[in-house]
């Protein structure tokens, strides 16, 4: 399915889940997401990881509604803890099957997001490994002077801003010197289209979602 359409569907579904009051609906969405991911041959290890990672927040949510809820506390506890899994497997549909390049490329061509946002973000993404390394370096450099940089220290953010400023300057200049222009029309080697069956499937899925949302399940 086209990445932009997939993003749109997942966003609509995520938004509606927030209002759904049905445990059955949450479990159905999570199960459908899981089935989709299995059919796309996402590794079992990753799927199992998705099941385990949120276990602490899930238990935390369940217990806090049980202890501090009003009304039907069991319903609230199960509703809100299964909702987390609905979000997670729904989110996985997007993040585990679509690459950043495809998503941004499709957003540019199908949703006409301005190129500076698409390529500016894409350019910044390529710095992720260096960002992680730089944060480590800053902390170690501070330790050598006997300073510990905490998450609440303004210095660590200030240094990050210095680096971001330099890199964004360099990145923009490098892109412009390679012919990037914010205003001219681009041609594309990789094109993204939305075939008719995509639209049809999207409509069917949305209808199913409304049945889940308004179907008065428990």
């Amino acid at each position: 399915m086209n990445p932009s359409l997939k993003l749109g569907l997942v966003l609509i579904a995520s938004f509606e889940i927030a209002f759904m009051q049905s445990i059955v609906a949450n479990i159905t969405i999570a199960a459908l997401g899981l089935l989709y991911l299995l059919s796309k041959r996402v590794s079992l290890k990753k799927l199992l990881w998705l099941l385990l990672v949120p276990i602490i927040p899930v238990i935390g949510t369940w217990l806090s509604f049980y202890a501090h809820g009003t009304g039907d506390v069991f319903h609230s506890a199960w509703l809100l803890s299964t909702r987390i899994y609905a979000y997670i497997y729904l989110g996985g549909i997007l993040t585990l099957t679509v690459s950043v390049e495809d998503l941004l490329g499709s957003l540019e061509q199908n949703c006409h997001i301005p190129t500076k946002f698409v390529y500016g973000t894409l350019g910044a993404f390529n710095f992720v490994p260096r960002v992680n390394q730089t944060v480590k370096q800053m902390k170690i450099a501070a330790l050598m002077r006997g300073e510990v940089l905490h998450v609440w220290s303004p210095e660590i953010f200030f240094k990050s801003i210095l680096v971001s400023l330099r890199w964004s300057d360099n990145l923009a200049q490098a892109m412009q010197s390679h012919g990037f222009s914010e205003y001219t029309k681009r041609s594309h080697y990789q094109t993204y289209s939305i075939p008719k069956w995509n639209w049809a499937l999207a409509v069917i899925l949305l209808i199913c979602l409304q049945i889940l949302a308004f179907g008065h399940f428990i």
Binding site: K116, F117, Y119, G120, T121, G123, A124, F125, F127, V128, V131, N132, T134, V135, V151, I156, F157, S160, I161, V163, S164, L165, W167, S168, D169, L171, A172, M175, Q176, F180, E182
Partner: peptide, 18 residues
């Protein structure tokens, strides 16, 4: 500008990494 977008995105990535 392109530079602003890259700057904001990079700052965001740094905040995440921190």
């Amino acid at each position: 500008s392109l530079r602003d977008v890259a700057f904001i995105a990079l700052t965001g990535i740094f905040c995440g990494a921190i």
